[in-house]
Structure formats: structure tokens, C-alpha cells
Amino acid sequence: MRIGYYPGCSLLGSSREFDESVRAVCETIGLELVEVPDWNCCGASSAHVLDHELSVALPAKILAQAEAAGLTEVLAPCAACYSRLIGAYSELEKNPDHRAKVSEIIEMPYTGAVKVVNVLEVLERFADVIQAKAVQPFARKVACYYGCLLVRPPKVVNFDRPEDPQVMDQLAAKVGATPIDWPFKTECCGAAFSVTRTDLVAKLCGKIVDSAVKLQAEALVVACPMCHSNLDMRRPETNAALGKDLQIPVLFLTQVIGLAMGIEPKKLGIQRHMVPVAFNAPTGAQA
């Protein structure tokens, strides 16, 4: 089986471990990733602030490249990229006139032939394979954190339920984890304010991390590089804001699945986290 793959900029740099773990897991479950040729940045959370047309044109270019390469479906593991791609797809789907205008801007035909999927959606299709291959169950209490962009706006993404989503929890449970029922699954972490308003990010992340720890989660599980860097890299600021020293590690879902499948931790980029991936009691898979 093959699927188009759009890693996006973060996965080449600050979130390399997401790329590494997605590739490792997909290889194990037998899903071939075909990278979109010569892809560009999607504009992330910046383009739409300054210009709407730009925020549609950049993702449209990516999808047009995928279309030219004969792909019909593109997996965007980064939730921000996913959101921009599916947002542009949905807007152009509704408005054929806009499609023509965008095709001119990007100097390529855009017909809307390529569907955009997120990493949870793709892994869900392989849930049984994943369960079968989970030889070293990840027997930990986990707090699955979805963030904003995978489930909102529901009319655009049309994925899982917008409040209290379930797909990541179900996947984590397939590899032996015990997902906790907690209220912060979709609360915003501060997203793109990591650099400019670190204080805000620390405050928002504080609520999320604190709640997970209170409910005895041993790890936070995410599927978005922005959420990951805020919850992981901004932990010193978060802890300072909370006045606590919380050391709960933050893993990408693909790392959790990879560990349970017995993939080499290094191959999953576990060592790249700021908050070390370490657990107290040896009750399950060790990193």
C-alpha cells in the first residue's frame, strides 16, 4: 500500500523524531510513503494572519504537486500542515471560481483530486495490524492530547468528534496503554506563540500538563509538532509558571506505537526530547 507523504518543515528540523517515528511505524505496518515532489512550506500559522490568498495558495501548490505526481491521498503528520492543507482543500472545493484563480497564482492546475488525511486517520485504518504487531505493550497510563487542529473546525476536518475525541485513545489502547479520561484533550497549547508570547504558552501548557499529572498519567501523547514543542521544549517556562517541577514526558503517538512494536528507541528519535522519556516503575515498555 502507498500513500502520498507531506512531512512539512518542522519534521525536517525541530520535530525530526515525528518524521522518524512515522516512517518507522509505516514501514513496519507495510505502508509505503511517497514524498510529494519538491514540496514547499504550507504557510503554517503565519500566512493567514497576513494574507488570506497566500494562505490558500501555498497549500494548493503542494496539493497540485501531489496531483501532478499521480497521488490521490496525502498524509500530513504535522497537525498544522494538515489543517492548512485540508482548509485550502475545503475552501477550494466549495468555490470553483476560486480554484481557477488559485491555479493561476500557483502556475499549476489544481483540480482538487488529492485528499488530505491526518496521521490518526491513517493509523486507524491499520488498527488491527498495529495491535497484532504490538509485541511489547506500552503498559502506561497516558493522556492523549489532540490539540486544536486535528478536530477543528469540525465541518472542515470532519474527523472524530470535536469535543472529547477518541481515535488516539483507541489506538493507544491497542498497543497496551491505558488512556485516561481527562478534560484537556482539545484545549489549545498556545500554538504559534511559542517564540513571541512564551508566557502565554507556559500558562496554557501549565493547565494541560498539570491536569494530566493530577489524573496520574505517566505520559502525554500527541500528534502535532507544535503541541509537542510547546509541551516538551517549553517545559522549563511551564514549570516556572506552575511553580512545580513536572517531568511527565511527551511522546508522539507514532513513538508510542513504535516502542510497543519493538522498534529501536533511537530509530524513533526518543533521545531527541527535552523532557527525558523515563518512567518510574518498570511496568511496561522502556525507552
Binding site: S14, D38, L50, D51, E53, I106, G269, M274
Partner: peptide, 26 residues
């Protein structure tokens, strides 16, 4: 040290086309 900083920029082949997108929109 965690390999999270790419020291060199990735240049794509379609840089000129992307520049033109910026010019036409922004």
C-alpha cells in the same frame, strides 16, 4: 545536541515559483 536544528536551509527547486506566489498575493 538533540539534532533538532538543521544548520543549512533546504532550498527547493520551485523557489522561483514560490516567490511569484508571494508577489501575486502578499
Amino acid at each position: 545536541v538533540r539534532g533538532k536544528l538543521g544548520l543549512l536551509p533546504h532550498m527547493i527547486k520551485g523557489t522561483a515559483a514560490v516567490k511569484r506566489i508571494f508577489k501575486r498575493t502578499l
